[in-house]
Simulated assay, not measured.
Amino acid sequence: MTTIRVLLISLLSLPLTALANPVADIQEWTVPWPDSRPRDPYVAGPDLIWFVGQKADYAATFVPSDAEFKRYDLPEGAGPHNVIVDKRGAWYAGNRDGHVGLINPQNGDIRRFELPGKGRRDVHTQAFTSQGDIWFTVQQGNKVGFLETDSGEFTLYSVETEAARPYGLVVHQDQPWIVYFASNEVATLKDGKLKVFTLPRKNTLPRRLAVTEDGNVWYVDYAEGYLGRLNPDSGEVKEWQAPAKAQARPYAMSSDKKGWLWLVETGVQPNRLVGFNPTTESFTDPVPIPSGGGTVRHMVYDPGSHSLWFGTDANTLGQARLQN
Rank of each mutant, 00 (worst) to 15 (best):
A163L: 13
P15K: 05
F69I: 05
P41S: 00
Q319D: 00
F113W: 09
V296Q: 13
R229M: 13
R165I: 11
E224K: 04
V63E: 02
V268G: 08
E162I: 09
W50K: 13
T30P: 00
H81N: 15
V144Y: 06
G101Q: 04
R37W: 14
E213C: 01
E114A: 15
P64M: 02
Q27M: 08
E185W: 02
L199I: 07
V123T: 13
G152C: 05
P290Y: 00
V170N: 02
I103S: 06
L115C: 14
P64A: 04
R249E: 11
F197Q: 05
R120S: 14
P286G: 02
H306L: 04
A127V: 03
P38I: 10
W33C: 01
Q139F: 14
H99D: 13
H99I: 01
G98Q: 13
N216V: 02
W218F: 08
I9N: 10
F181K: 03
D35I: 09
A242T: 15
D302V: 05
L74A: 02
G101Y: 00
Q241F: 10
L115Y: 11
D233P: 02
V179Y: 03
N315G: 07
R121M: 13
T3C: 00
L19N: 05
G77M: 00
E281Y: 12
D57G: 03
W218E: 02
G101W: 02
L273E: 01
R321L: 07
L115T: 14
R5D: 11
V300G: 03
L199S: 08
H81L: 05
V144H: 03
Q323T: 15
F136S: 01
T284L: 00
R207V: 06
L205F: 06
A18F: 01
F197A: 10
Q175G: 04
L156E: 13
P206F: 12
T295D: 11
H99G: 13
L189C: 09
Q173M: 04
D133C: 07
K118V: 11
V268D: 09
D47G: 06
K238A: 13
G292F: 07
D86W: 04
V63N: 04
G45C: 07
P41F: 09
G304V: 01
Q269G: 08
R249D: 07
Y226S: 00
R297K: 03
